[in-house]
Computed example of a mutant assay.
Amino acid sequence: MSAYLFVHFKEKRTPDGEQVYFGISRDGYKWETVNDAQPVLWSYYGDKGVRDLSINQTQDGRYIILATDLSLSYGMLNQYHNSWTEISEHGSKKLVMWESTDLIHWSSQQMISIEGANDFGVMWAPDVVYDSQNNDYIVNWSSSTMQDNYGPKAIYYSRTSDFKTFSKAQLLYRKSDSEVIDSAMYEEDGWYYLFVKSGANPETIILLRSQQSTGPFERVSNFDDGMNRIQRGKYEAPTAVRVEDQWLLFLDYYGTGAEGQGYVPFIGKTLSAGKFVRSDQSFSFPYGFKHGTILKISDADFDRLKAYHKKPSEY
């Protein structure tokens, strides 16, 4: 049997929201909190807050959490002067990382530098996929760059085999008629599928695919049919997980105040078919999970996480 771990943050105006939270599920549909709905990890370095979290298990059994180094709670009112432009151009050039071998005990917070990142604005929403053809990992994220005067964001990537050394950043995907953000890549039957949020034409989530992890990518047009049924410009941060014989896709709804935000679920048979149906009634969440990823875990992992409680002195 398998269970599932959702690593995410909360949309709050206080600093405790922009930290690392865990949710767990036996089946991928019914979710519950970990650590009494309090953070599992806290960011003390960089911007002292993390958003847009990803978690992966490496081939040698380690668990890796990567995140955007950004605190709106602290920074928006302070060094960024209530300006998204200042964040996009002058925010952190690093990613935040934690490592673990058991999902309970985590390394100290690490600040990850990637060659070429000094030319970027913020490195938004890191995602990781294992490249089985090259036996390494593709870390991908979205950024604007100084070279084009911080124009429309594109998706960039770096390769790593150990999460200690990273190759120079390279372009993964650029959309000619709009920015793209929030990349999430998955492998199915030898193809690599890349979800991204398109800023326009259309202003919603799109799905791409390639037989190589680094492209070139082509559009999966069938996916557009389902996205045409949801409100434009209100969904971001796609994340998906394979559960038995179907894919569960979650899109982060941000079209309301902070209290009403969170993931909306969809179900589809295969990524190749691209057909996903909104399925709210099949799922339950204890609160609005924000911009994260899901990892398949063991039943023993689930039991340990369900029992996990962190004392205030342990942060």
Rank of each mutant, 00 (worst) to 15 (best):
T204N: 15
G199V: 01
V264Q: 13
D47Q: 09
D177I: 12
E115R: 11
Y156C: 02
R51M: 07
I205Y: 02
L271F: 03
A117L: 00
H291Y: 09
V180M: 12
F120C: 02
F266L: 08
W191P: 02
G260Y: 03
V122R: 00
T101W: 12
Q261F: 15
T14A: 07
D16R: 09
L171D: 03
N222T: 14
G49T: 10
N201Q: 05
F276H: 08
M146V: 12
M146T: 10
I65N: 11
D36R: 13
F266S: 02
T270P: 06
E218G: 10
Q211M: 06
K30I: 15
R209T: 01
S183Y: 05
A67Y: 06
S83A: 02
G23V: 04
F166Y: 06
F285W: 14
D301T: 10
K94G: 09
T68Q: 13
A307Y: 04
S73V: 09
H90G: 15
S132D: 03
D252K: 12
F6L: 12
T256P: 01
R159L: 05
G257S: 13
L305V: 13
V129T: 04
N35W: 10
D301H: 04
A200N: 08
S167R: 04
F120P: 00
K12G: 07
G17I: 15
L249A: 01
V264N: 05
L295F: 04
N135S: 03
A200C: 10
E187Y: 06
T33P: 11
D182P: 08
S167K: 09
T85M: 12
S2Q: 13
A154H: 10
V129R: 01
Q59C: 14
T145E: 10
I181P: 00
V243H: 05
Y253F: 11
K197H: 11
G274N: 15
D27L: 11
W84V: 08
M97G: 02
E11Y: 11
D36A: 07
D225I: 00
E99W: 01
I114F: 07
L53H: 07
M123E: 15
I294W: 07
Q79F: 05
M111G: 06
F283Q: 10
T85I: 06
L172C: 06
D136K: 00
G49E: 08
D119A: 07
A240I: 09
E314D: 14
T14F: 03
F266Y: 02
F163V: 01
D69A: 04
G199F: 09
T165W: 10
Y173H: 05
Y150G: 03
Y130V: 13
T145L: 02
A240V: 15
F285Y: 14
E259Q: 15
A3I: 14
Y80N: 00
W106M: 13
R242M: 15
A3G: 09
G262D: 15
H105W: 15
Y315P: 14
A300N: 09
K311A: 04
H291N: 11
I297M: 00
H90S: 09
I297V: 07
R278E: 07
S107K: 03
G75Q: 03
L171M: 07
L66I: 00
P216Y: 02
N82C: 14
K30W: 09
G255F: 08
L305F: 12
A200R: 09
Y308R: 07
T293M: 13
E32D: 11
Y193A: 05
G61A: 07
K296N: 03
F223A: 05
L66T: 00
